[in-house]
Design a protein around this nucleic acid. Structure first.
Lengths: 215, 215
DNA sequence: TAATGTTTGAAACACCTGTTTAACTTGGAG
DNA sequence: CTCCAAGTTAAACAGGTGTTTCAAACATTA
């Protein structure tokens, strides 16, 4: 068939390789040969390597955002939203959505890479396409932690984002250690259960003295 | 002079460029030309690009570990160590040591990159050269949080490591946002002041029900 | 001063990169 | 059956990569 599964095979292979080695370290030749697809297929179907990277992200983030936006909408209707509620919704969407199609740890590792590596175009892409959903989330977060100064909340969001992304992105290695050192087989659900009280406590930690503002 | 400053100039330039663009994205030609040094100098003085990357880290981490080990030694003599004490020592060493020679944010970004990017040789190098100091730290951490189950502490260490590394690795971008959105010029010292209570609270968060162990 | 070992310099090496080209195959509509 | 657009293929392109070579320049020792 002409309309074959070439696109999907490229996406699957690229996703796995990107997560394993990073973007710059993964060449189109490795992707296409492992996907059993011609080298030119990437440029034909996606246009460029950059566009392929973005497509890999979109395949995860689009369904996630759709689901998450629904949940946010129902939360926005409520008169009051607790921090625990909001975080629980976030955790549930994160776990449920990509579970239907792939490994969560792969996606998390990709997200971590996107933030640190390739500082340019990926950040811009994520901001442009998913910034609105993120803003919606932070608005609710503001309601559920009204006593926190805005700047303090801003930083804590990123602290916690780091905790999640970093842990998830080296999940396999950490899981191995947890198994051998503590005899614990950690499922994603267990990790989320561990993260929730930590993140909640972190967000509610006492506020230190403020740094001076720009006059 | 034969013993010129070539090595230092390479290290300075490589450090800045690695932090800015990542390891794979920074070529030896860019480094050497900006450092006003011959292309072959890197391979002559360091042996390879990998060795150069490791040398960049060693220049930061060696003095840090020396200082940190001293502090750890005096803590180990005490009969009791609180979590706040231990974290404060860690923060102080982190801030003070590299401040003598370069930007802390550069170093932190490098550390973040090392963990996410180039998963292979850098992780191994860090483990081999600085794993013992890390172990010493975690042993003290265990004493200062004795009520925490070992597995729980293990995961929380990595949550907090992620919070620090991730934030630091995208520090410049976050700092720009903090400045434009909250009119705050965040110095590294401010960030550390923000991190300390958050990390402390996170480590002391209530422990959720345990996941089942491998029989 | 002469010999020595270290450091630099320009060029080449072999290889890998993303992208483009143009010929070729193929599935489905008229 | 014909035709056309969509998809695939192998080859080439232009440029960048880390590394090596070997002669020249240099500082330091005898």
């Amino acid at each position: 068939m002409a309309q074959s599964d070439t696109v999907v095979r490229i996406l699957d292979t690229a996703e796995a390789l990107f997560a394993e080695k990073g973007f710059a370290e993964t060449s189109l030749r490795v992707i296409t040969s492992r996907a059993k697809v011609n080298l030119a297929a990437v440029n034909y179907h996606f246009g460029s390597k950059k566009a392929l990277i973005q497509a890999v992200f979109a395949r995860y983030l689009d369904p996630f955002c759709e689901e998450f936006n629904k949940e946010l909408a129902s939360l926005e209707k409520k008169s009051e939203v607790t921090l625990e509620e909001l975080l629980e919704v976030l955790a549930r969407c994160t776990v449920s959505v990509p579970a239907t199609k792939g490994s969560l740890s792969v996606f998390m590792r990709l997200l971590g890479l996107a933030y640190t590596q390739a500082q340019g175009h990926m950040r811009r892409y994520l901001q442009e396409h998913y910034g609105q959903t993120f803003l919606r989330f932070t608005n609710l977060l503001k309601l559920s932690s009204a006593d926190l100064p805005d700047a303090e909340r801003f930083w804590r969001i990123h602290f916690m984002l780091g905790a999640v992304v970093f842990t998830m992105s080296s999940l396999d290695a950490l899981r191995d250690i947890a198994l051998s050192d503590y005899n614990e087989k950690t499922r994603i659900a267990d990790l989320v259960a561990r993260l929730l009280p930590v993140v909640t406590a972190a967000m509610q930690a006492p506020v230190p003295e403020q740094p001076e503002l720009v006059h």
